[in-house]
Amino acid sequence: MTKVRVAGFSISLDGFGAGPEQSLENPLGKGGMELHRWFRGTRSFRAMIGQGGGSDGLDERYAHRAMDGFGAFILGRNMFGPVRGPWPDESWKGWWGNNPPYHTPTYVLTHHRRDPIEMEGGTTFIFVTEGIEAALDQAKRAAGGRDVKIGGGVSTVRQYLRAGLIDELHFALSPVVLGQGEAMFAGIDLPSLGFRVTEHQATEHATHIVLAR
Rank of each mutant, 00 (worst) to 15 (best):
V6D: 06
I11F: 03
I11W: 05
L13R: 10
A18H: 03
P20H: 10
E21P: 02
S23G: 01
S23F: 03
N26K: 14
L28A: 08
G31P: 01
G31Y: 11
M33T: 13
M33H: 09
M33P: 00
L35Q: 02
W38L: 03
R40V: 06
G41Q: 12
T42E: 10
R43P: 00
R46G: 01
I49V: 15
Q51I: 00
Q51P: 02
G54A: 09
S55D: 11
G57T: 13
L58C: 05
R61Y: 10
A63K: 03
A63D: 08
A63L: 03
H64W: 06
H64I: 00
H64P: 00
A66E: 10
A66I: 04
F70Q: 01
F73K: 02
G76C: 11
M79C: 08
F80Y: 14
G81D: 06
G85D: 05
G85C: 12
P86F: 10
W87R: 03
W87C: 07
D89M: 08
E90Y: 13
G94A: 04
G97Y: 01
N98K: 15
P100V: 01
H103K: 14
T104D: 02
T106I: 09
Y107F: 15
Y107P: 03
V108M: 07
R113S: 13
R114Q: 13
P116R: 07
M119C: 10
E120I: 00
G121F: 07
G122W: 07
G122K: 06
V128P: 12
A134L: 04
K140N: 07
R141M: 07
A143C: 07
G144W: 12
G145Y: 04
K149A: 15
G151K: 04
G153P: 13
V157R: 13
Q159L: 15
Q159Y: 09
L161N: 04
R162S: 15
A163L: 08
G164S: 04
I166N: 00
E168Y: 02
P175Q: 11
V177Q: 10
L178G: 02
Q180A: 14
A183R: 14
L193K: 06
L193P: 11
F195T: 06
V197D: 02
T198V: 15
E199P: 01
Q201V: 05
Q201K: 13
A202I: 06
H205P: 08
H205G: 10
A206Q: 09
H208N: 04
R213I: 07
